[in-house]
Simulated assay, not measured.
Amino acid sequence: MGSKIAVGIAVALAMLPMLLGAVPLAVVTSLTGTGSTTCTPSETTADSVPGYGQDQLANAAIITSVGKQLQVPEPGWIIAVAVAIQESALRNLDHGDRDSLGLFQQRPSQGWGTPTQIMDPTYAATQFYQHLQAVSGWQQLSLNDAAQAVQRSGTPNAYGQHEATAEAIVAAVAGVTCEHTGAGDCANIAAPTPAALTAINYACGQRGLPYVWGGNGPLDGDAGFDCSGLTRASYGAAGVPLPRTSREQYAAGPHVPAGAPLLPGDLVFYATSGRVHHVGLYIGGGNMIDAPDFGQTVKVEPYRHPGDDYVGATRPTTSR
């Protein structure tokens, strides 16, 4: 909010504790988790894919839902489901070869996460997609080669045989209702990317500072923030530049499709008569952190309430 132009904030992640000064850093419990996703396929859905039960298709629905949330193209969902078919028959296994665990048989000793994290299907799927997207030109590879580039399996040609089944399963679970929730508070942050995590962590560290019209925060010599000053500084701490005003930030996108689940780190916007006037930083659980208005302070509050003028959301980064 406001139109004061400030010097851009470009702060290395290593300097984040210094940025927050005397305000304690929020406790970070998951660097790349996305909260939790619950999917409930019907018996009819299960009947559409012979040989796979509701629990297996629920796991496939989680994999697909996470792919949607991370804006991975549909071929990526099929690759992920094919891998889970090969590695675990779409069951969240608490055992495997050596220390392999979960849907994708990811190994704690190989840096995939802690055993508890890997046994969370949402976390495991997020990790798979992030590794897949790091494979150069993965969309031009065969399913088998893309899967093997991520998994580095001792049976490198095993994935392609599941392509048709994976396609059928993805088609079957496309309409399954899934509920995605993040932590929704500053004491237990879950975010899909390191940049979103850093932005939320920074914003949480500014709680209690006053609303100041045109304010860019103490680093810029201001006592507090206005709404877009807070979001700009938060993503600036993560090395992601944003325009100054809420209206410019909304125009910059990329926009979250209407009806798609929000992810922690998304920016949520409000408009009157088509004119954007406010922005907050979504932190999950139906909550945002924002600098609301004169006489108020930076705080966590619900991002929706009856009669609000919510207009949509943007996702400043899906990979950083």
Rank of each mutant, 00 (worst) to 15 (best):
M1R: 04
G2V: 09
G2S: 09
A6S: 09
V7S: 15
L13R: 11
L13W: 14
M15F: 02
L16R: 12
L20Y: 01
A22S: 13
P24I: 13
V27A: 14
S30Q: 10
S30W: 05
L31W: 14
L31A: 13
T38A: 05
C39L: 07
C39T: 07
E43L: 15
T45G: 06
Q54V: 14
A61Y: 06
I62C: 01
T64M: 00
K68D: 12
L70I: 05
V72R: 07
P73K: 10
P73C: 07
E74L: 13
P75T: 01
I79L: 06
V83T: 08
A89P: 05
R91H: 04
H95F: 10
D97E: 11
R98P: 01
R98S: 05
D99T: 08
F104K: 06
G111R: 07
Q117S: 04
I118G: 01
A124S: 15
F128S: 13
L132N: 10
Q133W: 07
A134Y: 06
G137V: 12
W138G: 11
W138V: 12
Q139R: 15
L143Y: 11
Q148N: 12
A149P: 12
Q151C: 04
G154V: 02
T165C: 00
E167I: 11
E167M: 15
A171S: 08
V173M: 08
A174Q: 14
G175M: 05
V176E: 03
E179L: 02
H180E: 08
G182Q: 01
D185Y: 00
A190N: 02
A191G: 06
A191T: 00
L197K: 11
L197G: 09
L197P: 02
L197I: 05
I200V: 09
I200S: 00
R207L: 10
R207E: 10
P210E: 03
P210L: 07
P210R: 11
V212L: 02
G214S: 00
G215I: 07
L219H: 02
D226V: 12
S228F: 02
T231L: 04
A233N: 06
A238I: 01
G239H: 12
V240A: 02
V240S: 05
L242I: 14
T245Y: 01
H255F: 06
G259D: 13
P261A: 01
D266N: 02
L267T: 02
S273E: 15
G274W: 10
R275T: 12
Y282Q: 03
I283E: 04
I283Q: 00
I283A: 01
I283F: 02
I289E: 10
V300P: 03
P302Y: 10
P302V: 03
D308V: 04
D309C: 07
P316S: 09
P316G: 06
